[in-house]
Design a protein around this nucleic acid. Structure first.
Lengths: 334, 334
DNA sequence: CACAAAAATACAAACGTTTGCGCAACTAGC
DNA sequence: GCTAGTTGCGCAAACGTTTGTATTTTTGTG
């Protein structure tokens, strides 16, 4: 564990002042070409590596942005993270990831922590337990640029990147209608979250446009897990449904499992469309028609929104909508 | 964007010296109980939040650890990250994630960057392009604790957390032998990586123990993608194989697809076992027998190894082996 | 060659904490 | 009531950079 050389070490060896070395290294300010060369040469000779912590303290801002998600290892979120990382890292920013496990308590803890660390920005999808934008408001009022994605309080300062959940659900439902399904139910998430509310609205719009009845008794909330899909499929059948739009692929999976167990043929007897286009969607039998989220793109957009706000120093709220795409496969085609 | 209060603001308002406030807040050193209370009260009153950057500069070390993986959104890695985060964050550490896209160039960049940021430690699975431990050596020689996982140079300082790939492949191969398959091929990765070398060795051991021939002509390297699985399945059939052990589930998927296209029945005519136990393994038909990696556990172990080394300040190399488990399903059962 | 303008470099303060040291005040032991 | 130990707190330096200003050196012009 050797001691790391600093800017003053370089300065001493070259009989220069630390400030000159700093300017040479960063390219800010006027420094003669030859001394610049000398400094660079000496820097590699000593194996100099800038101390970002000192730099950040002086500059009052770090080069890191925090990304806050419910669960890192959910494909959707890891795709977002990956997308964000791929633009932020080359731009010189570090990404620190935090998971909230969908708990408000954890969310509070990690956001506080990020603020303590003077992050330049945060990209967050808030926990399901979070129903008020209070804490997030403090983020931007602290001068930290805020980008929300997926789950978002849209009237907050800063950018927000969301899927066009309305259009996605609309397309999915319309697809089922066009394939002759007559009584289409809905397996949704928590309807007070923007994401699921929008999907419900899109579903409803498609029904109404086609002159089909919107019936609350075949709309199920908190139903995006595999178990709930299985369970609510039974309920939907009792209500004479012949199709289900699911706000999540795992619910659709549960639906299909129930169908198999009960010799209900998909898509002949019953149609199902999921959301998220999880990896397994194309691999199961029949393959699952699903609405793709394009998570990676959301991560990229969120990162670019951060960069833009950072440069322009604007915090005027803006909303970026990334389109969803219906991937038609076999589960609702007849 | 209001100005954030500092320790000196608190000190000024209470007619104390900043050092006293610092000691009160951190609990280090002797401070009277009443002043301690006063300080805390004033801290919340002003909305004080410690500036970690300044603290880190003074202490010469940060509370962040870097995690370096090839791709964030590969399930295995995102599970590791999630596991690591779940122990590191409550312990007061931040996790900054970096992906290398399996490129040496990116790896060099991100590691340099982490060093610049004075991280307390790194948890890394090196890129496939990295064949020498040179750069990683610099990490520990810089006093940064190093934990490698999965892909690892085992003779380096610090800890390393690996799967028992040998035992996993051994169990998988044995399972196929016990189910009556006679000529079992191997679809592996890059055999100069420890992971794939160990899997090959385990496979070989099982064969030899059973008195079966180890035949190089049915061992394929660089073959863990879906495409390669599909492609090499044809080759394996030419070589009269009746089973394949695949070092990755996606290769196994390719194998099964080729089988379906050519009316080869699995498991009756041909057996296949994968590795990783990806989500789709239980969902496809027939379901895929696979060797589970327990990625989350690896992340947890890696994080705990970091914490241990940090506390004890020991760098004596140690190796933590996390077991793999054969998940028996339908693809090699007869 | 004198003088102004421009270029190169030096100086010093600052960012917000932490920490070794020292000094006063208090407590306890005899 | 004197010494020794303890407690509470202030002082100042330090961590390594950055940056506004000042100073020196160089260059250019008439």
């Amino acid at each position: 564990m050797q001691i790391r050389p600093t800017i003053v070490d370089i300065a001493r060896e070259l009989n220069l002042h630390p400030s000159t070395v700093s300017r040479a290294l960063t390219g800010q300010g006027r420094v003669g070409q030859e001394t610049k060369d000398l400094v660079f040469k000496k820097a590699v000779e000593l194996g100099y590596n800038c101390n970002q912590v000192a730099s950040s303290l002086r500059k009052g801002i770090t080069d890191t942005v925090g990304i806050v998600v419910p669960l890192i290892n959910r494909l959707f979120f890891s795709n977002v993270i990956s997308g964000a990382e791929s633009v932020l890292n080359p731009a010189g920013y570090n990404l620190v990831v935090c998971q909230t496990h969908d708990r408000k308590e954890d969310e509070t803890r990690v956001i506080r922590n990020l603020l303590r660390n003077q992050v330049a920005g945060m990209i967050v999808s808030h926990s399901l337990e979070t129903t008020s934008p209070e804490l997030l408001q403090r983020v931007s009022s602290n001068g930290v640029v805020l980008v929300q994605f997926d789950r978002a309080f849209e009237d907050l300062a800063g950018a927000c990147v969301v899927n066009d959940n309305f259009a996605g659900a609309y397309a999915a439902t319309k697809h089922m209608i066009e394939n002759g399904y007559k009584r289409i139910g809905h397996l949704g998430g928590e309807f007070n979250a923007n994401v699921y509310a929008d999907r419900l609205a899109g579903y409803r719009k498609a029904l109404e446009e086609a002159g089909l009845e919107f019936d609350e008794s075949i709309v199920f909330d908190h139903s995006i897990s595999r178990d709930k899909g299985f369970y609510n499929m039974a309920k939907a059948l009792e209500q004479k449904c012949d199709a289900l739009y699911c706000a999540g692929d795992y619910a659709a999976l549960g639906v299909m499992e129930y169908a198999r167990h009960n010799n209900i043929r998909i898509p002949e007897d019953f149609g199902v469309v999921g959301t998220a286009n999880e990896i397994f969607a194309e691999l199961i039998n029949p393959s699952l028609t699903s609405v793709e989220q394009n998570a990676r793109e959301m991560g990229i957009q969120a990162a670019e929104a951060f960069l833009a706000m950072r440069e322009e120093k604007v915090t005027t709220p803006r909303k970026i909508v990334v389109p969803m795409k219906l991937i038609v496969r076999g589960s609702a085609k007849r």
